[in-house]
């Protein structure tokens, strides 16, 4: 390691606050870019499942209607 101790690595001769804040902001933004689509994928799967179910229910209702038709 370039620094003699962890303490020095954190302080960086007084520049630590700048260096560490720049790196933290970068990492937070990058993590956000990774996890946002992962979360959205789950949501999208749920939406599509709902869409499929709705279609099935509609189709069943239509069939019911057709088979009911002659009696009325």
């Amino acid at each position: 390691m370039y620094f003699e101790s962890i303490q020095q690595l954190i302080v960086m001769d007084g520049h630590g606050i700048y260096v560490w804040s720049a790196f933290s902001i970068t990492i937070v933004v990058m993590l956000g870019l990774i996890f946002k689509p992962l979360y959205q994928a789950k949501q999208e799967f749920k939406n599509i499942q709902l869409h499929i179910k709705l279609q099935q229910v509609n189709a069943a209702a239509m069939q019911q209607k057709d088979s009911d038709a002659p009696h009325t």
């Binding site: 960086m12 001769d13 700048y18 260096v19 720049a22 790196f23």
Partner: peptide, 11 residues
């Protein structure tokens, strides 16, 4: 610049 130059690695 001392250690502040390390910001180059993300900037």
């Amino acid at each position: 610049q001392g250690n502040s130059f390390r910001i180059i690695y993300v900037h």
